[in-house]
């Protein structure tokens, strides 16, 4: 489904602060594969996602998604194939617009955005059903502005918006990191259910090593712009957080010194 070839990205090219954030990344995700990406700060996890999404243009390499070569597509065009949820709960929704308006915008993904009515009656029924599945009571607050929702509710809504039109690729960039532990669990649960129900190809960045092993079908570890560890199948199911840390050391030649990664 997703095929990345020799993707590289340099920030601040030619300046003193030049930093190669992605070094010749090669990655292939099969349809329905759910990969969790972990790594320390500055490992290039978010940059990888942003390059795939088109927020940053890549310097070299190619990105194929489904049948399309999206390497040179602008961000908005790629978004027709990609659903995204961000770390910051404020980023995924329009706060001054209502829940149903937000969902309607997401539902129009890939369709022409002309002068058709923004929300039809059947859309509303559809939204009510989908919101009810979140079990957050949002189905009764459809004309409330999103600005009134809590962080967890917004992330759940963003998740729904990202998947309401089935995306070829779902990308989650530490989408539970800004939530309290209980809410974070709920949103992760919801993620798991949605991905499973729709059999979505998913790339999830997380800083939680337990989650990286527990969720999905594959674990990728990044370090200084490269994927240094790619675990799947048996090798993965045998891993614990301890053995993961040990193999990080083996592959990177460094201690894993990142409190955030270890403590979480």
């Amino acid at each position: 489904m997703l095929k990345i070839n020799n993707l590289s990205k340099v920030f601040g090219q030619g300046s003193q602060n030049e930093k190669q954030v992605l070094k010749q990344i090669n990655l292939t995700l099969a349809p329905g594969e759910f990969a969790a990406v972990i790594g320390g700060n500055g490992a290039g996890k978010s940059t990888l996602l942003n390059c795939i999404a088109g927020v940053h243009p890549s310097d070299s390499g190619s990105i194929m998604l489904g049948d399309y070569d999206i390497t040179n597509w602008p961000e908005y065009r790629r978004s027709r194939l990609i659903g995204r949820v961000f770390q910051d709960p404020l980023m995924g929704t329009a706060y001054a617009m209502t829940i149903e308006e937000n969902l309607a915008m997401a539902l129009a993904k890939g369709k022409s955005r002309g002068l058709q009515p923004g929300i039809s009656r059947s859309d509303r029924r559809n939204f009510r059903d989908r919101l009810a599945q979140l079990e957050l009571g949002l189905e009764n607050r459809m004309s409330d502005k999103v600005g009134l929702l809590s962080g967890g509710q917004r992330q759940a809504l963003t998740l729904l918006m990202a998947t309401i039109v089935r995306p070829s690729l779902l990308m989650l960039d530490e989408h539970t990191a800004a939530l309290d532990p209980l809410t974070s669990r709920k949103v992760l649960q919801l993620t798991r259910d949605l991905v499973a129900a729709e059999h979505l190809t998913t790339l999830m960045v997380t800083h939680n090593m337990t989650d990286a092993l527990a969720f999905g079908t594959r674990t990728l570890m990044m370090h200084e712009g490269s994927i240094i560890l790619d675990l799947q199948g048996k090798e993965r199911s045998g891993m614990t957080v301890e053995t993961l840390i040990a193999s990080f050391k083996k592959h990177s030649g460094e201690e894993l010194v990142n409190d955030r990664l270890l403590l979480s």
């Binding site: 999404a53 961000e75 908005y76 065009r77 978004s79 027709r80 995204r84 961000f86 404020l90 980023m91 995924g92 929704t93 329009a94 706060y95 001054a96 617009m97 308006e101 937000n102 915008m105 997401a106 129009a108 993904k109 890939g110 955005r113 918006m161 990202a162």
Partner: peptide, 15 residues
């Protein structure tokens, strides 16, 4: 309307 609210979000849903 969403563009003024959150242009990042508009691009993320294909606008």
């Amino acid at each position: 309307r969403a563009t003024g609210d959150n242009d990042q979000m508009v691009r993320a849903i294909g606008g």
